[in-house]
């Protein structure tokens, strides 16, 4: 009986470890099982994507509908290229949807906010969002304010 209990408890520890790793992957680090299934990819070019990084949220009306996969430089336009994965349940993003880089709170993390336009047709896998609005850079903002004050 003592031997049985020993083996059961060791087995229990191993199972607990594996289960905990699974929960860590899903709940804590937000990985998705099965990778890209159930998602489609969109791209957007921004003049400035300062502060935006991979895994940042993509929201529609404040609700998270996907995440940023990658932020890189588009070699032709020299603009910031942001690749996103969107939940495939969200199949009503129109062709003229716009994307902007927003900040959660004054010092919070950056995320992408989408808003829907008026077109009939919707964005499909691999499409690009044309209408974009760049990240708010605090230094530039202050510079503009100072410039305006000087002009008065």
């Amino acid at each position: 009986m003592a031997k049985k209990w020993l083996e059961i408890s060791v087995g229990g520890l191993l199972v607990a470890g594996i289960a905990a790793l699974l929960v860590l992957a899903l709940q804590v680090s937000g990985s998705h099982l099965g990778g890209a299934s159930g998602q489609y990819r969109l791209t957007a070019l921004f003049d400035n994507a300062a502060g935006l990084s991979a895994k940042a949220r993509v929201t529609l009306a404040g609700v998270t509908i996907g995440e940023v996969d990658q932020v890189s430089i588009d070699k032709q336009t020299l603009m910031a290229r942001v690749d996103m994965s969107i939940d495939s349940a969200v199949d009503y993003l129109t062709l003229d949807s716009s994307a902007s880089i927003l900040t959660a709170g004054l010092l919070g993390e950056k995320y992408v906010g989408l808003s829907i336009g008026a077109e009939e047709e919707v964005l499909a896998d691999g499409d690009m969002i044309e209408d974009t609005q760049s990240a708010l850079v605090l230094e530039e903002l202050i510079g503009q304010v100072l410039l305006n004050l000087g002009g008065d």
Binding site: L24, V28, S29, G30, K55, R57, T64, E109
Partner: peptide, 15 residues
């Protein structure tokens, strides 16, 4: 709580 955590923690880099 969970959303910020998931956005910040990377499975291969951190865990």
């Amino acid at each position: 709580y969970w959303g910020n955590m998931q956005a910040a923690v990377d499975f291969s880099d951190d865990v």
